[in-house]
Design a protein around this nucleic acid. Structure first.
Lengths: 139, 139
DNA sequence: AGCCAAATGCAACTCAGTTGCATGACGCGA
DNA sequence: TCGCGTCATGCAACTGAGTTGCATTTGGCT
């Protein structure tokens, strides 16, 4: 399924910003921050604001999932789009040295009981530390 | 155990900022954001920067634990100081309507396997939605 | 009391993210 | 395929959390 078709299926207008951003995210094996996306050549000439709004609309449409790391930065992920859509209900690992986040797939988030009467919108779990590459670089 | 003694036990100078902030946090039944703390009369005349630095030093000393909500704001918690110290390894609930966070105590965070070679510094899980009070207020 | 290191206060700054508004482009119907 | 309304984009300016540098004060210790 093409990214353009996915946009249409969700009732979103197919614009260059959306197709490019969605393609970048779908290709990435991990959640990307706004900054990382705008670093890609395809998105380099996009306005910051447009990128933010694009990510918001993709997120609302359910095409990407969104995680906010312990560094306070939003990251967006669309890997496994289509067939094996990645709903995002798994933990994420954030390397505090290089800032890369990765999905810890195949591990479900536990069910958690919340205070009576509360409505749950979502949940996220972030494990943080230093990734293997950065540990090597340290030594 | 008095908050002043706790500071001393951790090798921290006992200053008004630290004793007041620690007392506020110890008394609160939930993690407080910087803004909520400075709203308390005891901390009202503290400089923003001092409050940030105070929270950082308390956090490093292990007297408080720190959670960053999906709203990107740091919250600090010291409830159950001393005897039943709250290590923070439980999930937290964040109400996106009123911004209040609460500790979901008695529920352990699951063990999660991370990529080989990575060093884990910490982990946090945040459940978000709307709390019972805010749901009532909506209706 | 007196000293030094550590803590405080102030000002200015960074950086992620948002808002308002004018312009441009997508989609749809004629 | 043309035209039009609506939504998307770009620009500028703003917000709010958090940080940094530096001069001043204060806690702890002798």
């Amino acid at each position: 399924m093409d990214v353009r078709d996915m946009l249409q299926a969700k009732g979103l207008r197919r614009t260059r910003a959306r197709t490019d951003v969605l393609a970048i995210l779908a290709e990435a094996r991990r959640p990307l921050a706004h900054q990382e996306i705008s670093g890609q050549t395809e998105a380099a000439d996009l306005d910051r604001v447009t990128l933010y709004r694009t990510l918001t609309s993709l997120s609302k449409a359910g095409l990407v999932h969104q995680v906010r790391g312990v560094d306070g930065v939003h990251r967006f992920c669309a890997h496994g789009l289509g067939s094996m859509a990645c709903p995002g209900n798994h933990p994420h690992f954030l390397c505090q040295s290089c800032g890369e986040m990765s999905c810890l797939e195949g591990q479900e988030l536990p069910w958690v009981s919340v205070p009576a009467g509360a409505r749950v919108t979502g949940k996220q779990m972030v494990i943080y530390g230093v990734c293997a590459q950065c540990r090597d670089a340290e030594a």
